[in-house]
Simulated scan of single mutants.
Amino acid sequence: RAWSWGPLGWVIPGEIFPVDIRSAGQAMNVSIGLGLTFVQTQSFLAMLCRFRYGTFAYYAAWVAVMTAFIAVFLLES
């Protein structure tokens, strides 16, 4: 088991796409993930200067949303 959100970005798309479109789905997953990572890294310092500790509360809220999503929709049985 991995105790991080990192592997989910690779494992979940690899499991949910049918075999015939899996490579295209993974390509879209990687492209969107890298694009969002770029936006996050470019906006982090501006957010930190304006919101100070609120920046970390913002990211903590997104972790809570991700946790709720996984708990409700992607339970491992």
Rank of each mutant, 00 (worst) to 15 (best):
A2K: 06
W3S: 10
W3V: 13
W5F: 15
W5P: 13
W5A: 11
W5K: 07
G6R: 08
P7Q: 05
W10F: 12
V11C: 07
P13C: 03
P13N: 02
I16R: 04
F17K: 01
F17S: 00
D20M: 07
I21Y: 03
I21L: 09
R22I: 04
S23P: 03
S23G: 06
A24Q: 08
A24I: 11
A24Y: 11
A24L: 13
A27V: 03
M28S: 10
M28F: 12
N29V: 01
V30R: 04
S31Q: 06
I32M: 08
G33H: 08
G33W: 03
L36F: 15
T37R: 07
V39M: 12
V39G: 04
Q40I: 08
S43R: 08
M47T: 00
L48C: 05
L48D: 05
L48M: 10
R50D: 12
R50N: 11
F51G: 00
R52C: 03
G54C: 01
G54Q: 01
T55H: 01
F56K: 01
A57V: 15
Y58V: 07
A60W: 05
A61L: 15
W62A: 05
V63C: 11
A64I: 10
V65P: 00
T67M: 10
T67L: 10
T67R: 03
A68Q: 06
